[in-house]
Simulated assay, not measured.
Amino acid sequence: MPENLLDTLIELQPEILKATGETLLMLAICLSVALVLGGALGILVFLSSRGQSLERFRVFNLVTNGVINVVRSFPFIILLVAISPFTRVIAGTSIGPLAASVPLSIAATFYFARLIEQTLRDVPRGVIEAAEAMGASPLQIVRHVLLVEARSGLVLAITVLAVSFLSYSAVAGVVGGGGIGDLAIRYGYYRFQTDVMVITIVLLIALVQSVQFAGQWLARRVDKR
């Protein structure tokens, strides 16, 4: 490591640790919201699709699919700015990691809903039909068939979500959202400190690789096929 880069790393260690903590906080909040709301929404979209047990709720399916497509079509930076009044109502401010967690959570919820729906489509239809023939309710099918059969794919879906929103959290730094992205903007861009930019890039790569490795390892462990 070049001496000046090491000196910068030592000098900015408190800032780097703070930025990393803010990034992990944003990620934890948006992932938690996405797992609960996005997971439930994705399951409902799947169950209300053609040929599934809740097909009679086709209107809900069509409307929800439309909303998911609209939200996912927004570039995140535009979504972040567009809902800033709503963010101020929820978080009391439009800057900082807690404020950035609001648009991150909204984007992650609909992103994850689509991932869940697509993952559940990989469950063999015959397994679902067998459960329906035995009189299983939609809730029992979800708990004992869909979530069990698709567990490996669900772990990978969560991994994709985490990796994607690590990048999104960095984008939030452009508008004062805090985290590693904010550190890169303040030092690497505004002050032209290339060494800081290199440090933030390496840090993000390390976080992404750690999440990706852990997710793939866990997916292999839970895959019983």
Rank of each mutant, 00 (worst) to 15 (best):
Ser53Asp: 07
Ser73Cys: 06
Leu62His: 12
Ile95Lys: 11
Leu62Val: 14
Ala91Leu: 04
Val102Asp: 00
Ala82Asn: 08
Val63Cys: 10
Ser94Arg: 13
Ala99Gly: 05
Leu27Val: 14
Arg72Gly: 09
Ala34Tyr: 00
Val33Cys: 13
Ser101Cys: 06
Leu25Arg: 05
Gln52Pro: 06
Ile68Gln: 06
Leu62Asp: 11
Ala91Met: 02
Asn65Asp: 12
Phe76Ala: 09
Gln52Arg: 15
Ile90Gly: 00
Val89Ala: 15
Arg88Ala: 11
Glu55Pro: 15
Leu62Lys: 12
Leu27Asp: 06
Val102Glu: 00
Leu27Ser: 11
Asn61Thr: 09
Leu44His: 05
Val102Lys: 00
Val71Cys: 01
Leu27Arg: 06
Leu27Gln: 07
Leu44Ala: 15
Ile78Arg: 03
Val45Asn: 10
Val71Ala: 05
Leu62Ile: 14
Leu41Gly: 07
Leu79Pro: 01
Met26Glu: 01
Phe74Glu: 09
Arg50Ser: 15
Ala28Asp: 00
Phe74Thr: 04
Phe57Gln: 05
Thr64Tyr: 03
Pro75Thr: 03
Val45Cys: 12
Leu104Met: 10
Leu54Val: 11
Leu35Lys: 01
Ser48Leu: 11
Phe57Lys: 05
Gly51Trp: 10
Gly51Asn: 11
Gln52Cys: 11
Asn61Val: 11
Val102Tyr: 01
Gly51Leu: 07
Leu62Ser: 12
Gly38Val: 01
Val45Asp: 12
Ile83Arg: 04
Arg58Asp: 08
Gly39Arg: 01
Ala82Trp: 13
Val45Met: 15
Cys30Ala: 07
Ala40Asp: 03
Thr87Val: 15
Cys30Asp: 07
Phe46Ile: 10
Gly39Val: 00
Ala100Pro: 07
Ser53Arg: 14
Cys30Asn: 09
Pro103Gln: 08
Leu44Ile: 13
Ala100Arg: 03
Leu44Trp: 12
Val59Gly: 13
Ala82Ser: 12
Thr64Ala: 15
Pro85Arg: 07
Leu37Tyr: 11
Gly39Phe: 00
Phe57Cys: 08
Phe86His: 05
Leu41Met: 11
Pro103Asp: 04
Gly92Cys: 08
Ala91Tyr: 02
Gly38Lys: 01
Asn65Arg: 14
Ser101Met: 01
Leu104Ile: 10
Phe74Leu: 12
Leu98Ile: 14
Ala28Ser: 13
Leu47His: 05
Ile83Pro: 07
Ala28Phe: 13
Leu31Tyr: 09
Ile43Asn: 01
Arg50Glu: 15
Phe57Tyr: 14
Ala82Asp: 08
Val63Ser: 11
Gly42Ile: 04
Leu41Phe: 04
Ile78Glu: 13
Val33Lys: 06
Leu41Trp: 01
Arg72Tyr: 10
Gly39Leu: 00
Ser73Phe: 02
Asn65Leu: 14
Val89Tyr: 14
Ser84Phe: 10
Ile68Tyr: 09
Phe57Trp: 12
Val67Cys: 10
Cys30His: 05
Ser84Arg: 10
Asn69Thr: 14
Ala99Gln: 08
Val71Ile: 15
Leu27Glu: 05
Ser84Asp: 10
Val36Asn: 05
